[in-house]
């Protein structure tokens, strides 16, 4: 039984790493207001949300199954408070830090309309810390952190995130005009407050 849980725990950890990678890339696409081939802009927003929530579900599965693991000997305190674990406390603690950050990001995202844009965006910045912390945790703590397959996966995920982040912070911060007719009446444009680009 413990073997099965351990297998589920490992697999769900890997799946959530892949999903969090996708979630970062989709979040950056949301930020830049870019559609994907076959997926309009509002679709990117929806898929970003769904993939993030799915990643969190797999993360919870990952943690819950390893609660029963005889090696990790996790208890409920280790799930929330980092660096107290008995098995590889440092690497495991990084996992706990990432888990706490995910909880904060998910909760503030779901309450976005209630807590407002500022609080939401402030907490959302932590996703850029969360991802590397989670990757270090997976390398340091994972049973096969150095197996070729896993190294390849981490390399692929890192390339995806690093290139997305470079794109996020490079070039201009405003997305290009959406395809569509420009408004024909120039008076309307002049009456528009809050526009910075001229």
């Amino acid at each position: 039984m413990s073997e099965v849980l351990w297998a589920i725990g490992r697999t769900s950890g890997i799946v959530s790493l892949i999903l969090f990678t996708a979630s970062i890339v989709l979040g950056i696409l949301t930020r830049r207001g870019r559609p994907l081939p076959g997926l309009p802009r509002f679709g990117v927003v929806m898929v970003h949300r769904s993939v993030s929530l799915l990643a969190a579900v797999f993360l919870v599965l990952h943690v819950v199954t390893l609660l029963g693991d005889s090696y990790a000997k996790l208890n409920l305190v280790d799930v929330i408070v980092p660096f107290l674990g008995s098995f590889q406390p440092f690497w495991q603690g990084l996992g706990t830090v990432a888990f706490d950050l995910v909880l904060a990001v998910i909760i503030t995202s779901l309450l976005r309309h209630r807590i407002g844009d500022r609080a939401f965006r402030f907490v959302h910045w932590f996703v850029y810390a969360l991802w590397p912390v989670a990757v270090l945790h997976s390398i340091g703590n994972g049973t096969d952190g150095s197996s070729p397959g896993f190294v390849l996966l981490v390399a692929a995920c890192s390339i995806a995130v690093v290139s997305a982040v470079i794109w996020r912070f490079s070039a201009r911060s405003t997305p290009p005009p959406t395809a569509g007719r420009p408004s024909s009446d120039p008076r309307l444009v002049q009456n528009r407050p809050g526009r910075s680009a001229r």
Binding site: T174, P175, T178, R181, P182, L188, V189, R195
Partner: peptide, 11 residues
């Protein structure tokens, strides 16, 4: 529709 800067505009 999008205006020339991509902002929403109601024709």
């Amino acid at each position: 529709v999008a205006d020339e800067w991509g902002y929403p505009s109601a024709p």
